[in-house]
Design a binder for these strands. Structure first.
Lengths: 334, 334
DNA sequence: ATATAAGATGTAAGCTCTTACATAGTCCGT
DNA sequence: ACGGACTATGTAAGAGCTTACATCTTATAT
């Protein structure tokens, strides 16, 4: 069933059918009715390839993500996909893992598939080495590239980010003001936003201490393995390091911190404070419940899509928008 | 840059270029070299639409999923997507929510986009009413439909499922044999596999009790809100129902159960047993850690993809494959 | 009534590939 | 040396849509 069949049955030309299909206004109401009627009587759907060939777009956005099973990234994908579909676009998903090469390959694949734009969900690896980001800049030469919680100074690359620096700065200061000075920063990602968080922590610490040496702890293991994270903290304690607070770069790490503190028989929050990040469902999973920073993921995604759609309509759009986060106080901090 | 440009620069016809591109063997080695050389000198990539038009496929699989931010489904998407890409396919993702209408619409959209097959990740709503599944059967008339943890008796629909019934049956029996008779079944989904789990629980209970009346508790609220789940259990207790064990249909519900038991000051597992399902990262999030059933999601996904790829090559494939689960014993059961 | 503008529809070219069929070139056996 | 059987390559016809441009209607102004 093609446009020819329809045009024949409706007694009009294929151009008219095409116009009806595309909502062009140059069709009389009567003709439109007739064509629409035939179309759904015969259950015709246009061939997406042919259409793509003619229009040179298929209303599809590529989503790149290191790991769709990551709690936070999965939510990002969810919001982005939802809002795209509400606007008549759909999404090709590419989960790349964390290797640069795989990411660059995925990017090319998406471009080959003729997506109209690319959204990078999660900021991993942005900013590691400057040259490592070349693949993004290259892609941006052909289509708009949106960075959710990432940043890159290149033409046609647009960022929507949470102000992780400030959130972390404020939270750290708050914990210090509650009387804890020996706060470990526990993180597992060197992504753009990961680095911003670390910087916020560090800046706040340095307002009251000389150095954060030894306190910044980078955990390399599995992002899901709470056991291993807990063990890491125990090992750390056994090296002789004193600490009575942990600020974690995400809720999973924070949960491990809670576990550690319990095993050490610290009272939380009287003897030991813990702060998480992302305000995910995990905050309710421990006793006491986790204080965590909400970085307003849904809002970020909403804006990101608005900007992308604007770009696709040829409008000028801001190439960097920043949203504040919010500290959600619960039981693990004073 | 089109195939014409390349053919001209290489001094051959477009047919030859096309043959090189498609790995046809009817090209001399010398010509192939020459063409390949030009292609990558000019960085040419074939137009996916034109190619799709000609070949009537774009090596793309549609993935349907109710909620990509669900812990379990997200993992499913992850595995499926990974294995597809390893085999040269990529994926269009549609998150539909749980409404039938939205699911049917998403299905049509995928078909319109000319995907080569559809994978339904998670079994929600399959089997609710028979007529509700018509949209799946219809889609299957046009392309293979794969059900991960779902089932439907229709042509060209293939299932790969975990044997949830048996897992749940065994686990329930085991808990009863440990001495607990008043076990609540705590669930929140009427999906196919949800129903199978329930049936397993029920069958096991009925080997030792007359009825499970009042013990099967269907929770309707948010799938992430542990507070609400805990409250639900408290309310239940306040109605006067006696229970000293909870078997939950997923780990989130089980975590709420742990929380409930702690708040009631039960000792776990001495006074109170809890079983989770999915063996997700959540099992480490409580004290004691959660006994949970592992339904081998990665294995399921691997087989599902193998079957799909087989079908796409025109092979005969089994339309139903079942894998056993495994009870992973931890601290919440005796 | 006539010229003109506006609106509706049709014609045909174009988008970039794939591939059946035609042709040209090679090699073999007799 | 010639017909036949290959192999390598080219030609041209699709594949199903969009859209600029041409044409035909109809309404409007004079």
């Amino acid at each position: 069933m093609t446009i020819y069949d329809i045009s024949e049955k409706a007694g009009v030309s294929i151009a008219t059918v095409s116009r009806v299909l595309n909502g062009s206004r140059k069709v009389s109401e009567k003709t439109r009715r007739k064509v629409l009627d035939i179309i759904d009587r015969y259950g015709y759907t246009p061939n997406a390839f042919a259409r793509g060939l003619g229009l040179n777009t298929m209303k599809t956005i590529g989503i790149m993500c290191a790991d769709s099973s990551d709690l936070y990234l999965a939510k990002g994908i969810y919001y982005v996909e939802e809002k795209l579909r509400e606007n008549g676009y759909d999404s090709i998903l590419c989960c790349t893992g964390y290797e640069l090469e795989a990411r660059a390959a995925a990017m090319n694949l998406l471009i080959t598939k003729k997506v109209d734009g690319i959204i990078m969900v999660g900021s991993n690896f942005i900013y590691e080495k400057d040259s490592d980001n070349q693949y993004i800049a290259n892609a941006a030469a052909q289509l708009p590239v949106m960075l959710l919680n990432g940043e890159l100074n290149a033409a046609n690359v647009y960022s929507v980010v949470s102000d992780d620096y400030t959130s972390m700065y404020d939270a750290t200061l708050q914990m210090m003001q509650s009387g804890i000075k020996d706060i470990v920063y526990f993180y597992n990602s060197t992504s753009y936003s990961g680095m911003r968080k670390l910087a916020g922590y560090r800046a706040a610490m340095l307002t009251q201490t000389d150095s954060t040496e030894g306190l910044e702890q980078f955990y390399r293991g599995s992002h899901e393995d709470i056991h291993a994270m807990t063990r890491y903290l125990k090992d750390l304690q056994e090296t002789g390091l004193q600490f009575h607070g942990i600020i974690a770069a995400d809720d999973t790490l924070a949960l491990a911190a809670v576990k550690y503190a319990r095993e050490m028989n610290y009272r939380i929050p009287e003897d030991f404070s813990i702060l998480g990040y992302n305000n995910s469902m995990l905050v309710n999973c421990c006793e006491p419940e986790l204080t965590s920073i909400d970085n307003k993921l849904e809002t970020l995604c909403q804006h990101l899509i608005t900007i992308l759609l604007g770009l696709l309509e040829g409008k000028e759009m801001p190439n960097r928008t920043v949203f504040p986060g919010e500290i959600i106080k619960r039981g693990t901090t004073r």
